[in-house]
Design a protein around this nucleic acid. Structure first.
Length: 195
DNA sequence: ATGTCGATTTAC
DNA sequence: TAAATCGACATC
């Protein structure tokens, strides 16, 4: 039986480690429009990412890595493409991906997304996004290029990228003013995001 | 051992 | 505009 060698390889659209090896700002921007996948038992939860924030390492006073290497931030100083999940306000888990050069502790926070495939969920905020995707501290340090949580590019989708200051980082001296939050203005959900 | 405060959300 | 809620981190 002759094999069909021209069968499209769907995994080509899946984002690998090299994508996450880029600087945080690049990853944060390129993540807009990307499809996030989470395998839960038999089904897969999917959503298009529409809001992210970049955190630039120990020098960035808004980043947890500016506190140095601690039990909590340890994963930030590790290899890119891994999850950094932390608990805050006694209620929410925040989902991030480590990016850039290992040891430089850059990260991107996932802040909002549009559910796909008829999935009814409110993903407009980092706490709500993580909760809906069932992501908790148990997922900390997990590989985001594997089969549990992974990302697919959608070359046909072109986001309209809006830049603003990051949310909730007023304590971060001059870093609070940096335009490190990225929103896809094309998304209907973008209209109701916090300003 | 104790106090402060947060990469948020929701309700008043 | 403020309360909820608890763990990380700093300080005593």
């Amino acid at each position: 039986m002759p094999q069909n060698f021209s069968t499209p390889d769907l995994s080509q659209t899946r984002l690998g480690v090299s994508f996450f090896e880029q600087p945080a700002v690049d990853v944060a921007k390129q993540l807009l429009g990307v499809i996030m996948n989470r395998r839960l038992g038999g089904q897969i939860l999917r959503a298009r990412i529409i809001e992210t924030e970049a955190y630039l390492g120990p020098k960035d006073l808004a980043s947890h890595s500016s506190k140095g290497r601690t039990a909590r931030t340890e994963v930030m100083f590790g290899p890119p493409g891994r999850a950094y999940v932390y608990f805050i306000y006694g209620t929410y888990d925040m989902f991030n991906v480590i990016v850039g050069v290992p040891g430089e502790a850059e990260a991107v926070l996932f802040r909002a997304a549009e559910p796909l495939d008829g999935w009814q969920a409110d993903l407009s905020g980092p706490g709500k996004l993580a909760r809906a995707f069932r992501i908790t501290r148990a997922d900390n340090a997990s590989d985001l290029t594997g089969d549990e949580i992974y990302f697919e590019s959608d070359p046909d989708y072109r986001p309209r990228i809006l830049k603003t200051k990051r949310i909730g980082v007023a304590y971060a001296k001059h870093w609070q003013h940096r335009l490190l939050r990225f929103i896809d203005a094309k998304s209907p959900v973008a209209a109701k995001l916090r300003r």
